[in-house]
Design a protein around this nucleic acid. Structure first.
Lengths: 244, 244
DNA sequence: CTTATAAGTGTTTTTTTTACATTTATAAAA
DNA sequence: TTTTATAAATGTAAAAAAAACACTTATAAG
């Protein structure tokens, strides 16, 4: 970048040094953690145990450290909280309103993360006050966190339609119904069962197993796994575009 | 956000104060400025006149100041350079690789901007070394600026297909051919003239004037204006989605 | 053996997208 | 004034994608 003060390009280095100290800021990351429990889309929130806004719900987050980049900071924050480290993470947006945090000037970079709630029976959400909320029933959040969640939901929707990202939220083996539930949760609308299955099958990235999930219906439902290799081969060879 | 060090939640305030000073960083904005001259998509770059990387091409940018948010910083940087202040701006991504700027640790928030090159005969690109490059012929850039431009191009493409953003790049009155040229530049592919016009007309957001542009052909081409009110009314009433 | 429940399965209609060729208005040249 | 050259303007048919739609089946529980 051309990281320079355009108003005073002369005497550059002196200016820069002065400038640096004056205008340094605290950079945070906040994570919008989406989960899915085979039925509904969830979001992981924690109850603040300190001021300001003590007792209110918020996203989890932390500060960027000197020896890491933002992606690494987001991974660290997530791992510290959930014990997990192979989670889908994507940067969303950077929030910088001057008084967004009344305590101090902080700029925050929002990330969204995807977790299968059930298969990651993580030994402890390590912060007691953490809780999974149904996305429809999430409480009001502090600061600009509601805005962050809104943007994350929009991004998730867009991603789910253009990348097989939904599979990050499912267990390894899943039924068509579960997949459809997931898409219905993400897109927030009902889908036609037959059209959905036809569409998914036409993408040709699932493997149907001989195994059935008998836990929901009398008849049982076949289990599927996502064929990541096939997907990636298609992307490589055909310029395959995942589009639901 | 929950801007806290998760590893040491006890003794919070003391910790925070220590932490703050230690981990403050410099935040910059860098602008990818796209322009259109009725023929081709352009990008505005400047030649650095200081070290490091003196003499090389880069995006324009500047540091975030204490009294502004990032959007404001981007507006300021752009206005300082071009004298313009009603420009379409959109945040793209935040770049934070530790040694992305070899001179110092700097995190940069990239923005993209859209300008009609001809109608904004701005009195001076105020930095002499600034230059419009055809998007296809842009030089190699410093640091991670090439990466930023790549992402901005992808975003522009996506936006152009889903919002009438292209009009920011055109003069108030334009011909169908110019509009098509713009879309062909952004999408980087040839479009069928009849299909393009049919599609545009079906959106019903342009007003055809009685005036012709005689500068290109013998026959002359009708001029159009974008009907912003109509567009916004449609969005409001019908949930109209702009989709080319 | 009856019943209740979710799983599984194809076809038709509608909408959207793509492919494609001729005529027209005008300025410039002859 | 006539001819010529050039880009503008215009519509339809075919193909592809999306949406609408209802009945049969497998099984556990009663």
């Amino acid at each position: 970048m051309f990281e320079e003060n355009l108003e005073a390009p002369e005497n550059l280095n002196m200016h820069l040094n002065y400038y640096q100290k004056e205008d340094q800021v605290l950079l945070a990351v906040d994570c919008i953690i989406f989960g899915f429990d085979k039925e509904n889309l969830k979001i992981l929130l924690i109850k603040r145990n300190f001021e300001p806004e003590k007792g209110k719900w918020s996203l989890i987050g932390g500060f960027l450290k000197k020896n890491e980049n933002l992606d690494e900071a987001a991974v660290r924050v997530l791992e510290t909280l959930t014990g997990l480290n192979d989670i889908y993470l994507e940067q969303i947006h950077t929030y910088s309103k001057i008084d967004r945090d009344p305590g101090q000037r902080t700029i925050s970079v929002a990330y969204f993360a995807l977790i299968d709630v059930d298969s990651h029976h993580f030994d402890g959400i390590q912060i007691d006050a953490a809780h999974w909320f149904d996305i429809k029933e999430a409480p009001n959040l502090i600061f600009d966190h509601n805005e962050m969640v809104q943007k994350a939901k929009a991004r998730l929707k867009r991603r789910a339609l253009s990348k097989p990202i939904g599979f990050e939220l499912l267990p390894e083996k899943f039924t068509m119904r579960q997949l459809q539930n997931l898409y219905e949760s993400i897109l927030d609308k009902k889908l036609d069962k037959r059209n959905f299955i036809n569409k998914i099958n036409s993408l040709d990235v699932l493997i149907k197993l001989d195994e059935k999930d008998m836990s929901v219906s009398r008849k049982g439902a076949y289990l599927y796994v996502f064929d990541k290799d096939k997907y990636e081969k298609k992307v490589e060879e055909d310029g395959f575009i995942f589009k639901i």
